[in-house]
Design a binder for these strands. Sequence first.
DNA 1: ATGGACAATGTTTTT
DNA 2: CATTGTCCAT
Length: 724
Amino acid sequence: MDLLAGLNSQQQQALSAGLGPVLVLAGPGSGKTRVLTHRIAYLVGHLAVRPYNILAVTFTNKAAREMESRVEELLGSRPNGLWLGTFHSVCARILRREADKLPFDNNFVIFDDDDQRGLVKRAIRDLDLDEKQYRPHTVHNSISRAKNELILADDFPVQTYRDEVVQRVFARYQELLLTSNAVDFDDLLLWTAMLLEENEEVRQKYARRFEHVLVDEFQDTNMAQYTLLKHLASFHNNIFVVGDVDQSIYRWRGADYRNVIRFENDYPDAQVILLEQNYRSTQTILDAAMAVIDRNPNRTAKSLFTDRAGGEKIELQELFDGREEGTFIVNTIATNVQLEGREPGEYAVMYRTNAQSRQIEEAFLQANLPYKLVGAQRFYGRREVKDVLAYLRLVHNPNDEASLGRVINTPTRRIGAKTQAALRTLAVNENISMGTALLNLAKGDKSDYIGAFSKGAGQALAVFGQMLAGWREKVVEVSPLKLMDAILSDIDYQHYLDDGTEEGVDRWENVLELRRLAAEYNERGLGEFLEELALVSDQDTVDADANVPTLLTLHAAKGLEFPVVIITGLEDGTLPHIRSFDDPEGMAEERRLFYVGITRAKDKLYMTHAQNRSSYGYQEPTDPSRFLEDIPDELVEGGNAARVTGRPKVSEQAYDWDSPAYQSAEILQPSYKAGMRVLHPTWDEGMVLNSRIEDGDEVVDVFFKDLGQKTLIASLAQLEIIDA
DNA sequence: ATGGACAATGTTTTT
DNA sequence: CATTGTCCAT
């Protein structure tokens, strides 16, 4: 095994760096994943480090999986015992093992965004605060930010009255989490970091075990993660981090690229290695990227270079509105696929906000072309999926009040708001969870608590309690799939979803999809199933196999690459986003986001902007993004040549990229261009002003010297080209 | 308790 | 505009 083969000298240096802290500053496309995987293989293969003594952390499960399989390839065998996972999954694992030292059990659940917001809302209500004034979303943000800084409710800095309120909500929220035997995303990091910080024994246990700690995307770590790493590497001090401050795009999530600087301060003896050779993009693309990022203040310039001199120019296209932008994108891809022999899967369409995807999707749907959309609640955020998951979570952990609240009356079973409130009061008075109360009420008349309810309410609760108790018995002996089937049939969920509409059918199909997923966890069990589902990221849903274009946010694009990239919505207010206008750090991050997008492209980059963008219902005129000004003119071509009049529409004809008929499908390309001289049988000579494809026909505007401007259908008017 | 009709209200990015 | 909340009639 020659791990050095095929690596450049900087990469080799990183790979075989000696013991101690190492900081690898890796530009986009410089092979950092390669360095990480080779480094692990090197540790195991050359230095005879046991995989058991290595921890590697990434930000997405996908990255972790990829790394694992590459390491396996390099070593020729599975690295048994290697800890490789996301920050959150690694933390969840540690917390489950060490739960006896913590204020929750090891079958704790991980609350998702909705659960978290719901819980904050309840905390706000519990404290008799005005929801209008203290919006759960905003308050939760403050709490989350604090947690990422390792600040607990007690230490929450109070400067204003509002802070004081947030502090109280924070404390209540945390109580509610614990009564639910739950943690939120931030808690995973926070509890682990605190545990390591405060418990010498636990810290030693892990710090001694992990002889080597490796970290990907280091620039995106927050304070909690940084602390965590520090403790984990505190015994052997072999911490190998890879990152690029220019690609730091998660500040709003607490990430702080200054952790890179902090690292250099905390480990003054760290070896610093720069990876500057880019193996991905053409020089043109790289030049544009560097021109954009160079404008950011306070950065150490990297000089990226590539072997791929020249390259196609960047194509900039102005469109009338988002709808036209969508059509342009679809037409461009469809045309290129036919004429340039590209595969549909080589294309990625990127945008700043998820809302932008809709008009693009509509264009694909209208043209009957397949595409795939990354992330954004696509599947796990669906109501029906969340419902079924909530049932499973409740069975797994009856203390989970968020799930209980979700399913107790879904489908409706005559347990309304009033009864639920009574149940909560009872639970609080008896100092038990609502789930426990419910399980007790399952005994019906024999329950001690039945007296607290009216006859109807008590009976309804007893019925549901019995159901829950039945599932609880099953959970120990039966696979997740069987349990799910039992639940679905007991609550007659299919019938509940079937409202006669197509949407109802779709919803049921989503449930079936979830069933398919559950089937994969027959051996691993319900706990793992739920945990993995709680920690899936949008990026994890990127599926490289389907040969169709990918639609994704710029954030989701980090770490990926595509032969052709189309960055859309390059308007002031969208990219950079308006919310960052008054914040220099925010603007710098918007710029980095653009940089990340540009550097995803290998061969060719398109950029689009629309003259009008609809924000909500209203169309508003826009200005081109200020970032466009920073790209040197000679790297860019195009503009608004194609659109002078009219709205090109996507041709109605259907083409399916997977069908054999696809190659014969007619994709029209204008055969006339502005400036051409043409001869018309009766109107004589004229000049082409503009040509476009509309409804499957080429429509040409021609200026005739005697008649003025005429609009012609190319296939009918027998034009002859005199001079191109 | 339920479901429908209407009003309000909010829009970045996501582990 | 699209979701979410509130009010009202059943």
